[in-house]
């Protein structure tokens, strides 16, 4: 009883705090100072048509680096945590063979999903999308592959090599920005090119490709680690 009252008090307190922000929200006002500057100077300074991408990779690039580091940390903790094999585990679980439709469709669809993921992160500076979305799409292709063939073993060394190389290159590109351009993760050391074309925005497409590969391999690593904890056989 006491617990229910306590939960009720906490929820009403939270609701009061949040509904304060409801009355304060005024969607009619213009952009604030920071966003106005990004919108006005962004095309000249960064050259990316996708302003979200410009903010993410260049203006707030350090945050993105930290974010990728957090994702790496959680992926490696999961890998470390699930690695320990329990000795007294019972015999492998028998699973049904996957249906013909799923098995055949996954063979056709998986390469298309990978291709679409690569398209999304290569065009990240022009269209909605970018490294994180592209990486998540690539990982979803791997999930489909594992659903179609549950006993498949994913090659972990490829995943960790891709992950390490792309993370390392991300940092190297950032440091190159210090020496050849304005500062850490500045994209200006490669010609900005024509605004709105595929080869534009300096280093942003390159950084996005590395972010996409890194996020894709990390999420794939998480998925395959979780899958390998179950002993299954057909």
């Amino acid at each position: 009883m006491f617990k229910k009252v306590f939960i009720f008090i906490v929820l009403t307190g939270f609701a009061l705090i949040l509904f304060k922000s409801y009355s304060a929200l005024n969607p009619e006002q213009g952009l604030n100072e920071v966003a106005t500057r990004y919108a006005e100077k962004g095309p000249d300074e960064v050259g990316a048509a996708n302003l979200v991408g410009a903010v993410l990779v260049t203006y707030r690039g350090l945050d993105t680096l930290g974010e990728v580091a957090i994702l790496f940390l959680s992926a490696s903790i999961i890998g470390f945590f699930l690695k320990v094999k329990l000795e007294d585990e019972k015999a492998p679980r028998k699973v049904r063979k996957t249906s013909e439709i799923l098995a055949t469709a996954s063979k056709i669809i998986t390469p298309v999903i990978f291709l679409f993921g690569i398209y999304v992160f290569i065009n990240g500076h022009l269209t909605p999308g970018g490294g994180f979305q592209g990486g998540a799409i690539i990982a979803s292709g791997l999930v489909l592959m594992l659903l179609a063939n549950p006993v498949k073993k994913v090659n972990h060394s490829i995943i960790s090599v891709v992950e390490s190389i792309s993370g390392f290159s991300f940092v190297i590109l950032g440091i190159t920005g210090i020496f050849l351009a304005g500062g850490f993760l500045d994209n200006d050391f490669i010609s900005l090119g024509e605004f709105g074309k595929l080869f534009s925005a300096g280093a942003i497409p390159i950084i996005y490709i590395f972010i996409g590969l890194k996020v894709g391999s990390e999420l794939s690593g998480i998925v395959s680690n979780l899958q390998e904890t179950q002993k299954e056989e057909i």
């Binding site: 957090i70 992926a75 998540a136 979780l226």
Partner: peptide
């Protein structure tokens, strides 16, 4: 955008 990816990682953890 970054928060969604972090949320995914933390949920998996």
């Amino acid at each position: 955008l970054t928060a969604i990816v972090i949320g995914l990682g933390i949920t998996a953890l």
